[in-house]
């Protein structure tokens, strides 16, 4: 009998915990607005805006302008922002990739190559001491989303076998120290 009471208490505890976690995600998850500018944080993040109140106005900025000041952030700004944000800051809108349809079109690698070129990618990473991930034993024609995720943290696909330390842009690291 006592066992049963304990079980019920534990069970209801677990249920309330799960509910609480769910409720928290509803509160903390930013809404998505296709009309927001990349630098207009508050349009989506509302009260949860990460930019301090005394920050210069970001509304008309692009990524290059952000990086003019944030050149020495540890970790880098491009490692703390999701890839969706760096795209937006570079003037790429939601519909540029996802189209104008509802539900939005799924994005494949060909879509990435409508802007990015293999030559540029190879060149950008050619000085990587551990390996050039864009020219590995798999060749240059891999799907981008093996590593680069746009709306969630990026990952290092190579590390399913290797133990590389280089960081793929936008792993969405926690902001440790700005400037």
């Amino acid at each position: 009998m006592r066992n049963l009471t304990v079980k019920i208490a534990v069970f209801s505890g677990i249920i309330s915990f799960i509910f609480l976690m769910y409720a928290m995600t509803l509160v903390s998850a930013p809404k998505q607005s296709s009309k927001a500018r990349g630098s207009g944080c508050s349009a989506c993040h509302e009260a949860d805006c990460k930019v301090p109140a005394d920050h210069v106005d970001t509304n008309a900025m692009n990524l290059g302008q952000c990086l003019e000041c944030h050149s020495k952030d540890t970790p880098k700004l491009t490692h703390t922002l999701p890839l969706s944000h760096t795209h937006r800051l570079n003037g790429v809108s939601c519909k540029d990739c996802h189209g104008n349809t509802q539900p939005p079109k799924l994005v494949n690698t060909d879509q990435c190559f409508s802007c990015h070129t293999i030559e540029n990618l190879l060149n950008n990473t050619k000085d990587n001491k551990e390996a050039n991930p864009h020219n590995s034993h798999y060749g240059p024609e891999l799907d981008c989303d093996l590593c680069h995720h746009v709306h969630k943290p990026s990952e290092n696909f190579c590390n399913q076998c290797h133990e590389f330390t280089f960081i793929i842009p936008s792993p969405i690291l926690k902001v440790a120290k700005l400037l």
Binding site: H137, Y138, L142, D143, L146, C161
Partner: peptide
């Protein structure tokens, strides 16, 4: 897998 080549490619 999301890549071709299995074990052969490694």
């Amino acid at each position: 897998m999301p890549v071709s080549g299995g074990n052969s490619i490694i």
